[in-house]
Design a protein around this nucleic acid. Sequence first.
DNA 1: ATAATACATAAGAAATACCTTATGGTAAAC
DNA 2: GTTTACCATAAGGTATTTCTTATGTATTAT
Lengths: 311, 311
Amino acid sequence: MNLTFRQLKVFEAVARHLNYTNAAKELHLSQPAVSMQIKQLEEQTNTPLIEKLGKKLYLTEVGLEMQDYARSTMQQLVDLEETIDQMKSMKRGHLKLAVASTANHFVIRLLARFAKFYPKISISLDVTNRSSLLDLLEKNECDLVIMGSPPEGHNLQSAPFLENPLVIVSHPHHYLADREHVSLQEIANEEFVVREQGSGTRSAAERFFTEHELEFKTKMDMSNNRAIKHAAEEGLGLAIVSLHTLELELKAKTLKIIAAEGFPIYRNWYVVQREGKRLSPIAMVFNDYIMQEAGQLMKDFDLPLFKSVNV
Amino acid sequence: MNLTFRQLKVFEAVARHLNYTNAAKELHLSQPAVSMQIKQLEEQTNTPLIEKLGKKLYLTEVGLEMQDYARSTMQQLVDLEETIDQMKSMKRGHLKLAVASTANHFVIRLLARFAKFYPKISISLDVTNRSSLLDLLEKNECDLVIMGSPPEGHNLQSAPFLENPLVIVSHPHHYLADREHVSLQEIANEEFVVREQGSGTRSAAERFFTEHELEFKTKMDMSNNRAIKHAAEEGLGLAIVSLHTLELELKAKTLKIIAAEGFPIYRNWYVVQREGKRLSPIAMVFNDYIMQEAGQLMKDFDLPLFKSVNV
DNA sequence: ATAATACATAAGAAATACCTTATGGTAAAC
DNA sequence: GTTTACCATAAGGTATTTCTTATGTATTAT
């Protein structure tokens, strides 16, 4: 059985009118065209669907069944079209993001704003480590990834969208904590708690010290940003971290930013996607959104000391 | 949007394999044929459904939606086919009958047997009066009608399928009730309770008396067969009724058949349908069934005195 | 009886659907 | 680097679909 949507459409009209001529008018067709479609449908099903008694038309039992089927199928088609339209116009859809754990906090703030504009869009946010992020991209299991240091040569495409100021923090009673200016040399005399080798933050810090021909004294390294901050709080050393991860600690005054010369170091946050990936409409919009709005939005958020540090 | 079932079928295969070449093999097509169907589907929806990243294929969000749609639509088509097949093979369907109230009792017995052969077939039986029967046929609201005297010239087609013996009954203590032979003249001396003018039974009775040049003395006429029998039970007169309506009364011995000369008068039960009506498979089978089997079946039923009357 | 109405059928033409083979391009595997 | 696997694209042809106009036929209404 090889029906066509055309046959169903015509049949539905005839079944509704119980009159070929009127159905033909509705469909802007000639009457024989309608007759033929019905005839073909009857040939397909190999059973009469409509019977003519005198001048009136009646649906046979199978005809009634066919009417049900035609209506439901056509309704489904309408539904599909609507769903697709909604997806296109982003009234519906799903945005799959993944972020580096260091970016988690500020990305959630960005997302909160973004989500308000697209109430019917569902969002999934995977907060995970660097290698998992690359894995997700590889498997095409997410639309976009936000991270601090995209790798090279994995068929990835990345774009910086926001400055990522790295600052030096200490516990509030550190002797450098309240100073208005701390020289490079004074910094170099301190010991640091740092991220593991290979981390973007670690690399940036090392580059900074190398460029200024200073020694970078690392006391401990840890693979977790939160652990580093905690170590600094406990006075195990100074820490170099992204300002964007510090909101809570600054509010709670468990850490203080040191007014170190040459700081903050500016790195970037990147949006990363697979090369060649055709973004879904909503992913494209989100991409545009953060590229254009992230800077402004971050300023709107109440990051204390941002300005003073930024001098 | 003007999809084709072909496009959906091909898309479904591709979505399942996530591989054009394998889908093509499954469908016994060349690979470009598959490419083209997908491309056309994407043109119809005006949105990508499948994306190729590296060597792997992925469904887009809309593609996933389309996959759902394709599967459900194709499943519905399978269901439709099955339903139609079942209707054709009479594993399903509906038989709409209407019978004259006088025929009710014996038709139900016929139906009970018939229904056993077609357990999934539902049957509706409308028991109503003559004019309503014609109305039902006119409006094509039933497949077949069973009645005693089909009218002429209503674009109806009728076929006798069973003898309808009319007998004379009286209450059990009537002085003719136990006689082994009652002459025509003795009958003609009696008074009768009869159906209204125009009724088939009435006409047949009148014809009988006219043919034998006897007077037909009618005391009362009633439009309801049951009322007539009741009148006879109460001794208001003799009654001429179809043997097939008497089963209960004979069993209960509230009426007795009189062994009148020339009786029973043989009339017929008819199956009536609209001229030109294409019977549904099940209606056709039922029609054949009663045409061929009704006589035998009626003999199987325990109609006491049938044989003796029939001598 | 005649006209009017409505569906069926036939013939022909245009569009389009659909498939094949041949070929090109790209990513991954060796 | 070469090969392999796999999809895209092009060209070309056939079959099918789908429509129209013209005409036939049956039923109903006048």
